[in-house]
Simulated scan of single mutants.
Amino acid sequence: MKINEHTILEGPRVLLVPYNEEHVPRYHEWMKSPELQQLTASEPLSLQQEYDMQKSWREDDDKCTFIILDKQRWADPGVEEEQCMVGDVNIFLTDPLDPSLAELEVMIAEPSYRGRGIGKEVTRMMMGYGVTKLGVGRFQAKIGLDNQVSISMFKKLRFQEVSVCNVFKEVTLELTVDESVRTKLLDEAANVTERDYRETRSSRHQLVLH
């Protein structure tokens, strides 16, 4: 999806940036992990397939993807952006007949960043973006039954369990964006700054750390 190709979202601890070609090698290394393959229900890809996937995520109208960066590390111009990568977050518009339905996925790929509330911060940021920029009215998350950490996180964000598929060993959780949810997301969005990715990259050492 091209809507976010020049967008950077700045939260308290993380930055969300477009998924670019330069991110692919690190992403490819992550996805060699059997643990991440299992958690994301993914098959291992070749590096070329990963580049093709990155291009499709950028071009396809039903996918919106951001790479998660460690904000503090990124503010140091001596650190390559690829070395600041923490994970990724995606919105998939899965139903052509209902463009307001969005499947949400978040992956904290770097183990040292797990259990620190990063996933919750990123998910809230992405939900705010989905509501304000993409017109999302209902969020859905499909999570492996053995991924209790993610299930617990989404339930804390008021997602409700709607079904369990024993064949695929996953649970589906949903959250309808009613007025109270929308108000809360907009309130939280006040802590998120949207910048131009092209301009910010050239002067990232000037980024104000909260």
Rank of each mutant, 00 (worst) to 15 (best):
W57T: 07
R58V: 00
R58N: 01
E59N: 07
D60V: 04
D60H: 07
D60R: 01
D60I: 04
D61H: 07
D61Q: 04
D61P: 05
D62G: 01
D62Y: 03
C64S: 09
T65M: 06
T65Q: 05
T65S: 08
T65F: 06
T65H: 12
F66A: 01
I67E: 04
I67D: 00
I68V: 03
I68E: 01
I68N: 03
D70V: 00
R73G: 01
W74H: 03
W74I: 00
W74E: 01
A75N: 08
A75R: 11
D76E: 08
D76W: 03
E81I: 02
E82C: 06
C84M: 13
M85R: 05
M85I: 03
M85T: 00
V86D: 02
G87M: 01
D88P: 08
V89F: 13
V89T: 07
N90R: 06
N90G: 05
I91W: 08
I91E: 00
F92D: 15
F92R: 09
F92N: 07
T94Q: 09
L97I: 11
D98M: 05
D98N: 08
S100C: 10
L101Y: 10
A102V: 06
A102C: 14
E105R: 10
V106P: 09
I108A: 10
A109Q: 10
P111M: 09
S112T: 14
S112F: 04
S112Y: 07
S112E: 08
Y113V: 11
G115D: 15
G115Y: 14
G115F: 03
R116N: 06
G117A: 02
I118P: 10
G119Q: 04
G119K: 07
G119I: 06
K120T: 13
E121R: 05
T123G: 11
R124Y: 11
M125V: 00
M125P: 09
M126P: 13
M126V: 14
M126K: 10
M127I: 02
M127P: 14
M127F: 04
M127C: 05
M127H: 09
Y129S: 03
Y129A: 08
G130C: 15
V131Q: 03
V131Y: 07
T132K: 10
T132D: 12
K133G: 11
K133Q: 11
K133L: 11
K133A: 05
L134K: 13
L134E: 14
G135M: 09
G137V: 01
G137P: 15
R138E: 08
F139L: 00
F139K: 00
K142L: 01
K142Q: 02
I143E: 06
I143K: 09
I143P: 08
G144E: 14
L145I: 02
D146F: 08
D146A: 12
D146G: 11
N147A: 03
Q148V: 15
S150V: 00
S150L: 01
I151Y: 15
I151N: 15
S152M: 02
M153R: 12
F154S: 02
K155S: 09
R158C: 12
R158S: 06
F159M: 00
F159L: 11
F159T: 05
C165F: 08
N166A: 05
F168T: 14
K169R: 13
K169L: 03
V171L: 07
E174N: 15
L175T: 11
